[in-house]
Amino acid sequence: MTGLAERLAPPASVPYPGAHLGLRWRPLIASDGPAVADLIRRVEAADDAIHRTSASEVADMMEGHSGVDLLDTAIGLDAEGRVEAVATVRVETAVTEMAVAVVNAFIAPHWRGRGLGRALLYWQDGRARQLLVTQFGADSEVPAAITNIVDSHMTDRRRLYIAGGFHAQRNFAVMYREIEGSETAPPARAGYTVVPWHEVPVERVRALHMEVFQDHFWPEMRGVWWEEAITELDRRWSFVALDPRGEPAGYAAVGRPADRWLAEGRTEAYVELIGVGREHRGGGLTSALIGSAVQAAARSGVSRIGLDVDTTGATHAHAIYEHLGFIDDRSQVYYSIEH
């Protein structure tokens, strides 16, 4: 494989969007936090976004995840100094087997339709290429990707990414099951037990996760997904399945999406990660884990439980979750430019 610089061809310089578009641009600083958080809330409400950005994620826009990601930002200010747009480019430095940059942007609804989206995406694409080469080196032979996930109903944004050279790689269905309050968990298969999350050392569950998600379409990201899930984890609703030897055979890491509670006015639990070891599949452990999470959430008075699933995967997971009572709500599309 040729070097990263040759494949990515980063531009020598990448200017901010032009002043003719009406906004003044500069990097994001800490004091912008309240205005940026307010902008994001307004944008996500107007767009009816599936997932809502948390305060922790806004903080990550200023310093990267846990302060370690390579990052660049741009905010657009109107003539009165109000924040009307924000864009980020973040290199996942925790991922070393692949050079991954994630781009994201929020533009106030009344500023759309003026070319800001195209101009920001041009800036993000150029900066992503520059930052990936900076992080991994010009001669690195690791594969590279510039990525984002877009709600499928946001058709204008999807057209923008397609026009920018991104390709739809995967579709993720967001599924929900309503909780009545009287649910009970089905028994685990013979010889297996399902125990609360806190009863198993977390490093043993993480080792199982890393093994399970080696089969995922993007295994290089499994460590990042684990850290994100642990950040959201609610131990009341999370469980581990143990095999007859007492070793972890499966797990369900379930979170409490507090920002979505506030946005939608109803309580829910959300399965951040679920996995069953290869040699333990086909025996109902997924059903036992989900059932335990549903029962626990019901006891907490939660009104529904959700998850997302790769509908293009080869595991037939979507059909399994339908059988467990989950119904498609909406969906998201994973876009990337890969080199």
Rank of each mutant, 00 (worst) to 15 (best):
M1N: 06
E6A: 07
P10K: 03
S13I: 01
V14E: 13
P17W: 05
H20M: 09
G22H: 01
S31P: 06
V36Y: 03
V36T: 03
D38Q: 12
R42I: 04
V43N: 06
E44M: 11
A55M: 03
D72H: 09
I75N: 00
G76N: 06
L77V: 04
E80I: 03
G81N: 03
V100Q: 14
V100F: 14
V103Y: 00
A105C: 00
F106R: 12
A119I: 11
L121G: 01
L131H: 02
V133F: 07
I149L: 05
R158Q: 13
R159V: 11
R159K: 15
G165P: 15
H167G: 11
Q169M: 15
Q169E: 11
S182L: 10
T184S: 14
P187H: 05
A190D: 15
V194M: 10
P196I: 10
H198K: 05
H198Y: 04
V200M: 06
P201T: 11
R204L: 13
E211Q: 02
V212Q: 10
F213P: 06
Q214I: 03
D215T: 06
D215V: 00
W218S: 13
P219Y: 04
E227S: 15
E228M: 09
T231S: 08
L233W: 00
A241I: 15
P248W: 04
A249Q: 07
P257S: 02
D259H: 13
G265I: 00
G265D: 02
R266H: 13
I274N: 08
G275K: 09
E279L: 12
R281I: 02
G284A: 12
S287C: 02
S287N: 02
I290M: 10
A293W: 01
Q295F: 04
Q295S: 15
A297Q: 14
V302L: 13
G306V: 12
D308W: 01
T311A: 11
T312C: 10
G313E: 09
H318C: 11
H318E: 14
E322K: 03
E322D: 10
H323D: 13
I327K: 09
R330V: 08
S331L: 01
V333Q: 08
Y334H: 11
S336F: 08
